[in-house]
Design a protein around this nucleic acid. Structure first.
Lengths: 340, 340
DNA sequence: AACGAATTCGCAAACGTTTGCGGTGAAAGT
DNA sequence: ACTTTCACCGCAAACGTTTGCGAATTCGTT
């Protein structure tokens, strides 16, 4: 026998009244006498009655549940986003179902299916690195369930989104390196099929142009993990023409690079200045402390969920999607500040 | 109008047949002719029919969903556990609902309530630092829904559990310090209401005793965060009688301590040898690299979920709870190896 | 021609809950 | 003594799906 959980029927039977009366008594309906209300509530408490959320979902076509599709929660940034999501969802009485795509397209597709099947009231999504086909998300749209993108948005679908100003933040980080006197700045870029990858690269290039610094295409390399950051440094920084600085697309890449730079016998920041992106838990812990961009993960999760809940509540088919842009603050630490 | 998702009724109406027939056609019931099967399946595909998991849950009293109550996913260890959980749940066709207690008792209680209300088929839980009353978990027991503890188990409830051998791992870490010639070893302990906190402390003390090293009670301090680790070092390591080494209850504490030790002008490992616990993403990244205990988070999540699913499937009221003990491997790195 | 067997499908109940509507009994008004 | 007005409660349908059972049609057999 599966879950012997108490139902309204059980209460009704024990009290010799109908389920409808029990239901009304529990919600203080005026049609019910104080006497029965008291009896019902007491028994409910005693038997630890918990309303069956599944039945309620079915009845109301409202699951009070939101789904999250996220690349990988092991990343500090994403786990912070989740905390933001959970906090506002929790306060609104919503449950959260989290699905990791693990950066795989197929997994993302079946995540979307599962969430649709579970009839979640809304979906928050940050697409995987692999994703370039968006059919599965269009199904969400067609199913008429609200969807809000965060961080990694989808270019082809009109929906609400919360992002940071990747272009500006990358520009700021690059500008900072230039102001430190750097001339040959390398960029370890993210996947360029993701908008964040492109925007950060664009901000980087624009800053160079604005300061009349030549853009060396061979100093721009796709590398966005600890390992690739490490490897790429080994190749790119060994010659005499080596870069004097590096802007990495995220912190872990920067840290992989830093280790490799040390292994090459170079000093940070004097030989090579480094800035990362995301301001994870690491930035303050590595040596030297890493200059980085605060991506405001918690706040991003919060506002994304607020927008989603608003959409769920207003419940209209037509609306003009809103894109909220958070500012990414450059946090300057030792890894990039040359002693002049 | 909320979610305009396609139902079996819609299919039935469009084909002029009954919902029962559609249902059977979709699952290849032999009673249905090939002709109608084909028609039904085609229309289902075309209209992108997704079975309503909510209705199925209600019908079968099986939600194919498991709940997770976890302290904080921002910790590398816990997010790894979750990955393990999700992977095996996913393969078994289960959905995962994750609830963070944020180390707060009240939150944990309402998490448990929410999961019960959602009629999850089973629950995985790692209790919060604050939790010392277990009524909410007893309700899960009474509701007859399977529960498996991981890492932070509950002493008062008989249930399956997956842990690592905290005692032995702590013993190993301490022994390692002793073998490096350390005599005055400090221990930054975790909360002692948690079993893991107690076990690690016990292992620490036993190792000292086995090697005839005096146990200085004032070198054992509760400190289990970056900040407290930092602060405690500043107090404990300033005198002439300072410890020559430190065994911290987790990596973040160790890293806070390391920074403080550096700030005091002391060298690691020669002045102070340090070992952490958990082997997070940091251990390999900080300078010097941190000796730590691999807690096998991913594997812990996997086996906990495997046990849980087994319980769900076998569906018996009576069973003898099983405690799976994983071995915690000490990984020796630079922070603790004295150049002899 | 008649009958049993097979094939193919629909009816209805059930999962737990909500809710509009109608029903009962008693008290109050005429 | 009649209707009216309450206060209080139950019936039944519905949400989407499954499933035992019975019904209808067709076919093969004697």
């Amino acid at each position: 026998m599966r879950s012997s959980q108490v139902t309204i029927k059980d209460l009704a039977k024990q009290l010799g009244i109908s389920p409808s009366t029990v239901s009304r008594a529990l919600k203080d309906h005026p049609d019910i006498s104080e006497e029965t209300k008291k009896a019902v509530k007491e028994l409910a408490q005693q038997l630890k009655y918990q309303p069956n959320a599944v039945a309620l979902s079915l009845k109301h076509s409202r699951s009070h549940t939101i789904g999250v599709i996220i690349p990988e929660i092991v990343h500090y940034f994403f786990s912070q986003v989740i905390s933001g999501i959970e906090d506002v969802a929790y306060d609104a009485g919503f449950t959260v179902i989290i699905c990791q795509s693990n950066e795989m397209f197929d997994r993302e597709v079946s995540n979307a299916k599962a969430l649709l099947s579970h009839r979640v009231d809304g979906i928050l999504v940050s697409i995987s690195k692999e994703t370039s086909d968006f059919e599965h998300l269009r199904n969400v749209e067609d199913g008429n369930i609200p969807m809000v993108f965060f961080d990694r948005v989808c270019p082809e679908i009109e929906a609400d989104a919360v992002i940071i100003d990747d272009y500006q933040a990358a520009y700021d980080a690059t500008q900072h390196l230039i102001e430190q006197g750097c001339k040959r700045i390398a960029h370890f870029a993210g996947p360029l099929n993701l908008i964040i990858g492109r925007k950060r690269k664009e901000g980087f290039i624009q800053a160079l142009k604005d300061y009349n610094i030549p853009v060396y295409e061979d100093l721009i390399v796709e590398a966005d993990s600890f390992e690739t950051g490490h490897q790429t440094v080994k190749q790119l920084f060994k010659g005499p023409d080596r870069p004097d600085s590096l802007f990495a697309v995220n912190d872990l890449t920067a840290i992989g690079a830093i280790q490799a730079i040390h292994e090459l016998g170079l000093k940070i920041p004097d030989d090579v200045a480094v800035t990362g992106f995301s301001d994870g838990r690491f930035s303050n812990i590595v040596n030297p402390k890493l200059t980085s961009v605060d991506q405001h993960g918690y706040e991003m999760g919060k506002t994304a969920t607020e927008i989603l809940l608003k959409r769920i509540m207003e419940d209209q088919r037509e609306y003009t999607p809103e894109t909220r842009v958070l500012k990414g603050n450059l946090i300057v630490r030792n890894s990039s500040v040359k002693k002049s």
